[in-house]
């Protein structure tokens, strides 16, 4: 396709998802607020009772940035995996859209916009709740709302590239258990990774995606910034752009298969 991208066309794809979501927004939105409450009660107050200090801060304050980043990762991931797969293969939404003036690149972009939106709602809800609990010490933390967009973009593109490549919906359980679960646990989220892994092995953490999102989120919730954050942003944008490109490639390949 040599026709380029019209933003309004991409937004029409976003709008379709938004209007389907908004029909039952109360049902959709509410769980996003309950989940952080459960996490903060169970981990923050429950486990936190036995761990008064970790890496120099109270336990709930330590885990807050990780939990916000995980929420954003999950929001983008559910949307870009199961929902995208169902729209593609069961509801055949894209077959319909491709018969209109909207092109492949615009569909992919619109879907990424939407996954980022969902991710932002998930992570944003988590952020608001942690503020209410008093676990976010810095005013800089409003910047988290921008970091959520980066986190959403990265996991939206990775998830979508996977969705447009796999042949069957069952493979998402592999994606969630083998890929996302270890990221959730080992990305400096629940314990200080550097202390356990040691400086010689930190390069492994530097390779993984959620680690960078957590470090950025932590910088904003605590208000402690350093130059390493530039590397985090480069990593997220770079990998995101790569998977964005791969998503479009895989999407085109998928829709150019024989008519069914």
């Amino acid at each position: 396709m040599t026709e380029g991208i019209i933003l309004k066309s991409a937004l029409s794809v976003w709008w379709r998802n938004f209007s389907m979501y908004s029909k039952i927004w109360k049902l959709n939105l509410l769980p996003n607020f309950f989940e952080p409450v459960f996490f903060l009660l169970g981990l923050g107050l429950g486990v936190g009772f036995y761990i008064p200090q970790i890496a120099g801060v109270p336990y709930p304050i330590f885990i807050t940035p990780g939990l916000i980043a995980i929420a954003a990762m999950n929001g983008a991931s559910f949307e870009s995996t199961y929902n995208v797969f169902v729209r593609m293969n069961y509801n055949r939404v894209y077959d319909g859209v491709l018969a209109t003036p909207v092109n492949e690149a615009e569909i992919v972009l619109g879907e990424i916009f939407w996954a980022v939106t969902r991710s932002w709602i998930y992570g944003g809800a988590f952020y608001i709740i942690t503020c209410l609990f008093g676990y976010v010490p810095s005013w800089w933390s409003v910047g988290v709302l921008v970091i959520l967009i980066l986190t959403g973009y990265l996991f939206a593109t990775i998830g979508m590239a996977f969705s447009f490549t796999i042949p069957a919906i069952d493979l998402f359980s592999v994606y969630f258990t083998i890929f996302l679960t270890p990221l959730m646990i080992f990305s400096d989220t629940f314990f200080p990774l550097q202390e356990r892994l040691g400086p010689d092995w930190m390069w492994i953490a530097e390779l993984t995606p959620l680690f960078h999102c957590v470090r950025l989120t932590r910088a904003f919730t605590t208000g402690h910034f350093s130059n390493i954050l530039i590397w985090d942003i480069i990593y997220i944008v770079g990998l995101g752009v790569f998977f964005h490109w791969l998503t479009l490639k895989q999407f085109k390949k998928r829709i150019h298969q024989p008519a069914r």
Binding site: K8, S12, V13, R16, T100, P101
Partner: peptide, 9 residues
């Protein structure tokens, strides 16, 4: 129809 219309702007 409204969703369809959006694709045409």
């Amino acid at each position: 129809l409204i969703m369809q219309g959006r694709y045409y702007g």
